[in-house]
Design a binder for these strands. Structure first.
Length: 627
DNA sequence: GGCATTGGCGCC
DNA sequence: AAAGGGCGCCAATGCC
């Protein structure tokens, strides 16, 4: 199959201008040569290359292809169905994604690979020792805007060369990567690379569309946090913990911690590197110094302000355009940055700042017990049997947490579920304990560390209780013994082949290996769902999702903006496609996803049904009269 | 002043 | 035998 590498030069990229106007579209086609298209020839050639990709099997390659496809789509919306079709037939590639996949396979995922520019074209050319130089210092690199609608014949030579060399370098990188994958005996590399490229495109569209924040709520959030911080600062300065400039002295905090523990006849807890810990848990144990309690509160508010509230201002007049990273995590999970929309606080009114555009409502859905279902599928694939899988098959709404609580307490499942529905306190407590077990133990957690882990779920156990619980957990899910035996074997070679995608993770150990299988599988399902949903939103006029826009993926949760009038239908379709995606990756396990409409993002949002239709959930209105 | 590291913490 | 993992961001600190 022949390859056609392409690239676009555009007006400068900026926040809010995620898919800027194209100046030219250049290509380098194997055996055919190179050319630069400008003006209307851009959409003409784009149409042609996509059609040839779909109908005649040529492979399209780019460096950061999602960006170029976004640029082309913004220029000519009628290209969108063709773009999706080209991704569908798995013949669109991205050299950045491919390089990252190869690095993951080699276990080359250290901090240097997270640096800016590590996957830039010039870096790839150098690292792969390719016979071409990419001139990143070329003065025209960021000046193509000046050449808009200028015939190429009138371009300075440097601008022509730079534009043409990009696709050539891309093609060389692509070939070099294919050879690399063969040398690594990376089965399924090309298919996996094409799949991830498609995911990358739809995640890029999400970032381009962006999400709004409410001016009123952001302002209230800032006023609230600032007011309390203003009260805390003088107290902390007075206690000698904070300098006049407003920064906290870690040293001073550590000496107070040490003093407090020593008054209790104890040694202060230390970090892995030997420093005295200053985290919330430690400070709350320092009863002799009440000011350390103020430090905890200050730290919480400072984080709320700097990491969250201040970043939300951007979304008031413009939109917040995060970057989703398709293979951000070594397990295959996505990540998000600038800002990270995947770790927005559920407390403090942060999520509630996110609101849909006028005329739209949020349509969200999250998977029900996604990682336990992928774990069940992983056990079926690896161990050839799974009690967890059997339970999901028997009851698609199976609740693994209540089930394990029953195993521990000797209750029947039906009885416990009935008690749970009534809000029974004991069931709730035991279920919480079981939840910690079900989330922690599959990753290889030991009894000792489980105690600290469970504390995060509000569960306090001594070592003996933790050990007993762990043993009971292995009795409940006997396949897990075989699962860990397999993981141990894999960790000895360090090469883990992800289930079904065949993506390789190199340099893997025991716990990360144990996590990789089910976390990786879940990430495929979620990304596939985003892909299918985006295609419906952007390119399928017959879909109830057409005209909706995906705005967020938070691992097992997808949020769209949908026109209010058809949001009910959009929600049903979102749910259907999410279930379909999950069952593509976990064909032996039934999947569930729960949709809801809302007027803001919130952990409290739940499905509200009126006259058989979903209607938007909203925050409870504060009563008109305060006391 | 800029850069890298560490500790801490938000989320799934 | 034992073994949570995965992120990104911020403040403080230390080094050049």
């Amino acid at each position: 199959m022949t390859t056609l590498a392409f690239d676009t030069e555009t007006h400068p990229f900026a926040n809010g201008l995620m898919a800027p106007p194209a100046v030219c579209l250049q290509y380098d086609e194997e055996h055919e040569g190179r050319a630069i298209m400008v003006g209307e020839a851009i959409e003409g050639f784009a149409h042609q290359m996509l059609t040839r990709c779909i109908k005649h099997g040529i492979i399209l390659v780019g460096q950061n292809t999602a960006y170029d496809m976004g640029v082309l789509a913004a220029r000519d919306l009628t290209l969108l169905p063709l773009i999706f079709e080209a991704y569908d037939v798995a013949r669109v590639h991205c050299t950045r994604i491919r390089e990252r996949l190869l690095d993951m396979a080699k276990g080359n995922t250290g901090p240097q690979t997270r640096q800016r520019g590590y996957y830039s074209m010039d870096a790839l050319v150098v690292r792969r020792k390719l016979p071409i130089t990419v001139d990143k210092k070329n003065p025209w690199r960021l000046r193509y805007k000046e050449l808009t609608d200028v015939p190429v014949a009138d371009w300075p030579e440097e601008a022509v060369t730079y534009a043409l060399d990009d696709p050539t370098a891309t093609r060389l990188i692509y070939d070099s990567q294919s050879a690399d994958a063969r040398a690594l005996r990376y089965e399924g590399f090309e298919a996996e690379a094409a799949r991830q490229a498609g995911f990358d495109f739809t995640l890029h569209l999400m970032g381009c569309w962006g999400v709004r924040t409410s001016q009123k709520r952001v302002r209230e959030l800032l006023v609230r946090t600032d007011a309390r911080l203003a009260e805390l600062v003088p107290l902390l300065v007075g206690a000698g913990i904070m300098t006049a400039k407003g920064s906290k002295s870690t040293k001073r905090i550590q000496s107070l911690v040490e003093a407090s523990f020593s008054q209790d006849g104890m040694q202060p807890p230390k970090t892995g590197k030997g420093a005295i810990k200053t985290d919330k848990e430690t400070l709350e144990k320092c009863g002799h110094y009440a000011e350390l309690g103020l430090v905890v509160e200050h730290s919480y508010l400072a984080k709320l302000r700097s990491t969250y509230a201040l970043k939300l201002v951007e979304g008031i007049n413009g939109n917040i355009h995060t970057s989703f990273h398709t293979l951000g995590a070594d397990t295959g999970r996505t990540s998000s940055s600038g800002p990270n929309l995947q770790n927005q606080s559920k407390k403090g009114g942060v999520r509630e700042c996110f609101v849909p555009r006028d005329g739209f409502v949020f349509v969200g859905a999250d998977y029900d017990a996604q990682e336990l279902r992928t774990l069940a599928q992983a056990c079926l694939d690896i161990c050839k049997y799974s009690r967890l899988a059997e339970a999901f098959k028997k009851d698609p709404d199976f609740d693994p947490h209540t089930s394990f609580a029953c195993g521990v307490m000797g209750w029947t499942y039906e009885d416990a579920m009935a008690r749970k529905a009534r809000g029974d306190k004991e069931v709730k407590e035991r279920r919480q304990q079981a939840k910690a077990a079900n989330f922690g133990f599959p990753g290889g957690l030991g009894a000792k560390n489980f105690r600290g882990y469970a504390r995060g779920y509000g569960v306090n156990l001594d070592l003996e209780e933790a050990t007993r619980l762990r043993n009971q957990w292995f009795e409940q899910w006997p396949e897990m013994k075989d699962y860990f035996d397999h993981v141990k074997w894999v960790s000895e070679s360090g090469k883990l082949v992800q289930l079904r995608s065949q993506r390789i993770r190199g340099g893997v150990g025991f716990c990360d290996g144990a996590n990789s299988y089910f976390q990786g599988l879940a990430s495929e399902a979620s990304k596939t769902a985003v892909y299918l949903v985006s295609k419906a939103c952007y390119a399928d006029p017959d879909s109830p999702l057409y005209g909706s826009r995906p705005v967020m993926l938070v691992h097992d949760e997808i949020i769209l903006e949908s026109p209010e009038a058809t949001a009910h239908e959009a929600a049903q379709e979102l749910q259907r496609l999410m279930v379909e995606a999950m069952e593509m990756w976990c064909p032996d396990i039934p999947a569930r996803a729960t949709p809801a409409l809302s007027r803001c993002w919130s952990k409290d949002a739940e499905p509200v049904i009126e006259n058989g239709r979903l209607v938007p959930w909203d925050l409870p209105q504060p009563s008109a009269k305060a006391a």
